[in-house]
């Protein structure tokens, strides 16, 4: 049994796993597009947390690859959220609804 606490990597990984699972759950179950978007953000942030944790607890102390990756992820996630919100706004403007069950015009 791994010991949990601020000085153990297991606790960080556990939090990241919970975040990721919550994101997957939100994507799978939410009918509102904003809910799905929040799920995606949770997944990306779980990965960022994991990068930072792995980077902090690795043996080679002066290598900051993990932390750098986490910063990149945060920036890219913000850009992705901006584009996604703009698209959801476009959908709302045309159909007054962002319910994924309702917007179903494209089909075979």
């Amino acid at each position: 049994m791994a010991d949990f606490g601020p000085s153990s990597i297991a606790s960080y990984l556990a939090v990241a796993l919970v975040l990721f699972a919550a994101g997957v759950l939100a994507i799978g179950t939410r009918r509102n597009a904003i809910g799905v978007l929040i799920g995606i953000e949770l997944m990306l942030n779980a990965a960022a947390l994991q990068f930072a944790a792995y980077g902090r607890f690795r043996a080679e102390a002066n290598d900051v690859q993990g932390q750098t990756a986490a910063v990149f992820v945060v920036v890219a996630a913000a850009a992705e959220a901006a584009v996604a919100l703009a698209l959801l706004f476009a959908v709302y403007r045309t159909s007054r609804d962002i319910d994924l069950e309702q917007t179903r015009e494209l089909r075979s």
Binding site: V36, I40, A53, Y54, V83, L87, V91, L100
Partner: peptide
């Protein structure tokens, strides 16, 4: 309306794929 719906589906599926990919990458790194 159709173009907006295409964009929305694209961004939601794409975001989910990108999230899964990044989670995998972080584990490979660790």
């Amino acid at each position: 309306r159709r173009a907006a719906e295409a964009g929305m589906k694209f961004v939601l599926f794409g975001g989910a794929a990108s999230g899964v990919m990044l989670f995998g990458i972080s584990h490979v790194f660790g």
